[in-house]
Structures are given as structure tokens and as C-alpha cells.
Design a protein around this nucleic acid. Structure first.
Lengths: 145, 145
DNA sequence: ATATATTAGGTGTGTTTTGCACGTAATCAA
DNA sequence: TTGATTACGTGCAAAACACACCTAATATAT
């Protein structure tokens, strides 16, 4: 059974992993973000407040590359960085106001898409899906680190 | 409700998307593959037989970059490419025998991991999850362009 | 409390990867 | 058949990258 679970999961993850739609949308929104910057932006939005090392690890890049990519997002006004209050070595990173706005637009688009995708699902099926996904997400979050 | 669905989905997708986990994964399997090559390898394994353009689109890269990355995998003996039989323009790409072996190792590791993660789930809950994930995967696959 | 070790991350530099522009061959469409 | 489109390889300049090294801040040990 686990192998079937994996199969379904891989399919679902791969589907949502295709950022081409998001990227096309971003261009429409008039924001100029390349693939690398976009991925970093999304990750910051999800993990904020974060720091250089954590982001580097998550994205599988060196801290130097990641630091310079963050510089670029900061110059574009999408993220804000400051020294952490309790540890001055740490560059604390979060979305700026305009970054949050862009994130909201992306989230709204995602919700639109899922709404559309599940349009012929019954409410019961959706509730069942939500319950199971929450259970899984909860279990996975406890595995972290 | 859809926004809660999105939230859970994003969390799950992000979990499986973390490059650092992939890397630990790769090391366990004893293979020397960088993040980019690994992602391409997995995608080829999932989509085979595929071609340069499709892979480029899925991964959000240019066809030229993708073509050169495929060269590298081919030189490592993990994939085989040949001209498509019905359209000689197309470079048809699939895993080699040793690529398939590696894929099996990776799949086995993944199953181990999920087994471990869900160790304290009841059989009933697992079945429910599988059923819901299959339903979702099926729905999403019908959206593919 | 002071000395030592570790951690976070910025910077210079050489290497690798990338996208773009362009070219060629194959296929499609008129 | 002829012009358009598609698939993809290649030269090249720009971007991204990892590495080595550095400083400053924090943690640990004595």
C-alpha cells in the first residue's frame, strides 16, 4: 500500500511543483522575477521570518549564493532584512509590504485554481480530503529536523 | 475551505520539495548527483519516454540548458537517448538499465521513509489517505494541458 | 572572567550553468 | 511543392554558483 501512496504523492507534488503557471502569472502582474528569484521569494514567504543559512539549506544552495540572491530581492523591494534582535549574527528575512501583496495575489490564484480543479467534487469528498491532508501535513511537520 | 486545502497542500508539497532531504536521500543511495541533475533524473524516470522540450517546460528551464543537462546524465550512463522512430527531430529520452536500478533504490528508500513516517497511523487512516490522494491525483491529471 | 571554538554570513574569485540568438534538419500545412 | 513551424544543437555573454577566506557575534570550556 505504501508504494501506491508514494505514487499518488509524487504525482501530486510534481503537479504543484510546476511553477510555469505561477511564473506566467507573475509576468502578467508586471513583476520581473526569474525562476531562481521566484523560488526563493516563495520560500521566504512560507518560512518567514527566516535566515540565510536555513534558506540555503532548504534550496540546496551555498549560503553565499543565497545571500546574494536575497540582496537582489531586497533591491527589488520584495523582502526586508535586518539583524536578528537576539542574535546579531543572523540576517532576519521577511517579505516587505509589497512582497506580501504579491504573495496574496499568488495565493489567490492558487485558490482559484484548486477551486476550479475540484469544481465537481462533493462537499463531503472535499471535507474528507482536507481532513486527510491535514493529518498528513501534521505528521510530516513532526518529522522536521 | 479551499484556502485550508491550499495551506495543507503547500505544506506537504514543500516538505517533499526540500533539496536537503533529496541530498540526504541521494547520499543514502550512494550516488553522485547534484541537485539539478537529480531533479532531472527523477523527472525523466517519471515521464519516460520524454523529450528535451517537455522536460525543459516541466523544470522551467530553457531547452538548451536541459539538453546539456541530459548530455551529462547520458555520459554518466543513467539515461539513454535516441531519435524518435516516428519523428526524427525528437530526442527520445529514457532511463538506462543502471538508471532504472537507481530509481528502484530511490523508490525503496522513499517507501521506507513513508512507512516510517506513518508508523503510528491505523490501517484505516492509511486507506482513507490513499483513497483521497488517488482521487486528487486523478483529478489533477485530467487538468494537464 | 578570559580564552578558545563555533556559528552566521559577507566578499573576492574562478568555474559552471543558464538563456538567448541563431542555425539546421525534419515535419506540417497551404 | 513551398513557406511555416517544430525540435534541438551550439557559440557566446551574463548570471548563478561553490569555495576559500574574513570578520563579528555567540557559545563553551577552563
Amino acid at each position: 500500500m505504501e508504494s501506491e501512496l508514494i505514487q499518488a504523492l509524487v504525482q501530486i507534488v510534481s503537479f504543484f511543483n510546476r511553477t510555469d503557471r505561477d511564473q506566467a502569472f507573475i509576468k502578467n502582474a508586471g513583476v520581473d522575477l526569474e525562476a531562481t528569484s521566484f523560488q526563493l521569494f516563495v520560500t521566504i514567504g512560507r518560512m518567514q521570518p527566516s535566515n540565510v543559512s536555513d534558506l540555503a539549506n532548504i534550496l540546496g544552495k551555498s549560503h553565499s549564493s543565497t545571500s546574494r540572491q536575497i540582496d537582489k530581492l531586497e533591491k527589488k523591494g520584495l523582502v526586508i532584512t535586518k539583524n536578528d534582535e537576539t542574535d546579531a549574527r543572523i540576517r532576519s528575512i521577511r517579505l516587505s509590504e509589497s512582497g506580501e501583496k504579491l504573495k496574496q495575489v499568488l495565493d489567490a490564484t492558487r485558490i482559484d485554481n484548486i477551486n476550479n480543479a475540484l469544481s465537481d467534487w462533493s462537499t463531503k469528498d472535499k471535507k474528507s480530503l482536507l481532513s486527510n491532508l491535514n493529518h498528513l501535513a501534521d505528521t510530516l511537520s513532526k518529522l522536521d529536523n
